[in-house]
Design a protein around this nucleic acid. Sequence first.
DNA 1: ATTGTATATGAACGATTGTTAATATACGCT
DNA 2: AGCGTATATTAACAATCGTTCATATACAAT
Lengths: 203, 203
Amino acid sequence: MNKDTKKRKNTKELILKAASTLFSEHGYRGTSVRTIAQLVGIKQSALYNHFKNKEEIFFEVSKEIFNTPFSIADNSLSKESLTGKVFIHKFAMQYKLLTFDKASEKMFRLLMIELLQNEGLREQFMSEFHNKNIKMLSEGFFIMMQNSLIRSGDPMIMAYEFISTLFYIRLQVTLLRFDAKSTDTLATQFEKHVDFFWESIKN
Amino acid sequence: MNKDTKKRKNTKELILKAASTLFSEHGYRGTSVRTIAQLVGIKQSALYNHFKNKEEIFFEVSKEIFNTPFSIADNSLSKESLTGKVFIHKFAMQYKLLTFDKASEKMFRLLMIELLQNEGLREQFMSEFHNKNIKMLSEGFFIMMQNSLIRSGDPMIMAYEFISTLFYIRLQVTLLRFDAKSTDTLATQFEKHVDFFWESIKN
DNA sequence: ATTGTATATGAACGATTGTTAATATACGCT
DNA sequence: AGCGTATATTAACAATCGTTCATATACAAT
């Protein structure tokens, strides 16, 4: 009774959880409302007590993709960036953490699967995933440059160079883990990238 | 009569062309055999005179993805890599060319769309797109190192750093062009990457 | 206890899917 | 000219899709 009550209460959340799992494995089109309902343990018609339609379920799920922010807050940036290599190391480790975090991984997979099928997702990818990081890193490198911690150059180019490798490693990890393959070879890749990159820009 | 004859003759090719366009825009699941047939100008049942089923059409199309090799042949590598920056510049320009080439772009889109839905594509991506390039570049950097053209270090890490940014730019270009947006900002990004990278490794 | 509300089920719908079979048409070959 | 082969059409199929509706059940509030 008590269990049932509890179960009833959070059906909506269970639906979202099931849907996010299925969407991140088979995409929007590859996931049917019947499969979602089955994973929750209800019939498909019951879904419509909680959501208007399939699209709304996907929309709710996809909102989760970009609300896992990097923990380096913008205001502490100028202080952080004075630490030079520590700053970029910290950033890379955050990135690594998200790469191997189960929930983040799921959302990253969903993003990759639907990136070319969903214009809204593309725009969010550009603004939240790319521009935001480029901006933050550019500012960091600019400050480092002003304090002669690194050689002079275009901070945006540096940001590009730095983030692109992180992204590439993440994509590879995601692909390997999707097939339950080992990511041992890539385990230290993030750190190696930080080392190489810092050698490239340091004064 | 003559025209019709010609049309008849290459229906199979027309199907593949139509299918590759549709698959690269809407993915495998998002493309129906009726839509393919419609684009060719025939009824869907006629497709089955040329292909066993939908999957076979996709398979034939996807074979095209990885058969656009980089023109830098393996045997000329050791000679090429002695040119140092010229070598990596050449490589990057090849990459840029493919990025903006219509046919290559289409195949790259298809690859990205189906990457997480098709295990075979993932494996090919890893072996053809990743490992092959890493290997070629690693060997190049190794030779440059032996000839003191660049600073010492792990050639594979260098290869990683070099290819990841190229890939990241290509992905961005592909996304922007998918929405018919301008890629002006990214036009010189490849060259800037080469310059930055060479500064990072040169002796 | 009764009522109202929220949530579940079962059944059905129209649309679309990939595929097949019977049939028609056009072409090259002898 | 006629025959055989290749390729087209028309029609239908079973399956699956997202969605709706009438109805049943359980819970909270009165």
